Simulated assay, not measured.
Amino acid sequence: MKKLFLHVGPHKTGTTAIQKFLVDNTKPCFQQNLVYPKRYLHIFGHHHFREILKERQLRAEDLEFFSENQNDFLLSSEDFISLDEADFQYLRQSLDNFDIKIIFSWRRASFKLYSIWQEVIKHGGTVDFFEYYHDHVARPGTSQMLSPDLKLNTLAKVFGKQNVKVIDYDASSNSNTLYQDFINACDLVWSDNFSIKKIDKTAKNESMKLYDIEIVRALNNLMGYKYGYQGSKVRLAYSRFKDALPADTTSELVSIIDSHTSTKIVGNYFVDTRAEKVMMQRFGANILNHQVNNSTKLLRLASSRWLSALPVHDLLSNLASKLNQLNTEEQEDVSN
């Protein structure tokens, strides 16, 4: 029976870099009978396929596409992780002529929570890190962020536990073997035919600096209220026009934020040790490259108290006005 490998992410486990690698290596994958299709591709991942599943819109031509040859297929999108049991059942039933294999990357929660919080802010969120962190820690047994076994239980129920493959992302990252470990999860053999190109900004969702993410967080609220900016519009405008913003305004904001920062140690928290124990008990045999991880790292965080400093409101208002002006002028130039 043909295989369909479904790479479900999750977010912040090297998915964009893996997808770029797969786009660059479609030929050596095909030489081992695995197709990473251009169909459904958006940038590097098959994010449109997630919407097809969610909306129950797999058409006869889609089914024919997967069935017309004898190749195995690989679909990858970190957005697959947000699908529920009914969505996955729909996929399994629609492609019942495939042996569906799940590839899931497990990353310790305390290392990725800050990165996930940044993604929330980049897409229009306004919650500070401490509130975001507490919301998950207060319910570790029901948070899929802290308890990867919750989603894995669903995937095992739908596709069979034997068809779930787990990559220990932290182990792969530490040994610099993420691509090799992923190829292994796809039942392929690593060879010199595979090319690892230098990772550029298009293939890496980079974290923003502490000061930048805090300014964007504040502007999300202000510019949403004053100018109707929604989603990632603030972050995109800020990144594009940052160098054109008044230097004295941004430097004063940076100074204020800096006076309200502190350094925290993350890693090897209770949530990590709990997840490690549960994962080994329930999915130890499914983890391809497990390594015990007791490492820690320093994280510099800003308290929301910086927003209460006396000049901040005027500084942010000036910044928002200038940013909106620059963004509007660019859009008018494009339309003309």
Rank of each mutant, 00 (worst) to 15 (best):
H48D: 14
I43W: 04
A171V: 09
T261V: 14
F44M: 06
L91E: 00
P311H: 06
Q19D: 05
P37L: 10
A109E: 06
M145I: 15
E214S: 03
T16P: 01
S115F: 09
L6I: 15
S77D: 11
S232W: 12
G124I: 13
Q230L: 14
Q31N: 15
L53N: 10
A244P: 00
G124Y: 05
I256H: 01
A309K: 14
C29D: 01
S232K: 09
T250R: 07
L288E: 05
M223Y: 04
R139A: 14
Y229D: 00
Y36L: 04
L245F: 09
T273L: 10
T16H: 01
T142E: 04
K101H: 13
L316K: 04
E85C: 14
S175M: 07
K112N: 07
Y133A: 00
I213S: 09
P148V: 06
K161E: 10
V312W: 03
Y179M: 13
A203S: 15
D170L: 11
L6R: 02
L75G: 06
N286A: 05
L4Q: 03
A218I: 07
I265E: 04
H123E: 11
N153Q: 14
Y114D: 09
V216Q: 09
E276H: 11
D62P: 01
P37Y: 08
Q89N: 11
R300Y: 00
H11A: 06
V334M: 10
T273K: 12
V164W: 05
N176Q: 13
T250M: 12
T177C: 12
P140L: 09
R282N: 12
E330A: 15
L310V: 11
K242E: 13
D248V: 07
E206P: 00
E214I: 03
Q118A: 02
D84P: 12
I183Y: 10
K201N: 03
K264Y: 11
C186T: 07
S295M: 11
K151L: 07
D96H: 10
L301K: 06
Q325T: 13
I215A: 08
Y269N: 07
L34I: 14
V8D: 01
V35H: 09
K112E: 08
F104M: 10
D96V: 01
M208F: 10
D314Y: 03
F30T: 13
K226M: 10
S147D: 12
D192V: 09
M223N: 01
K12P: 14
N318A: 09
T249E: 12
E51F: 15
R50G: 08
G160N: 02
T250A: 04
S335I: 07
N293C: 10
T142A: 05
V254D: 15
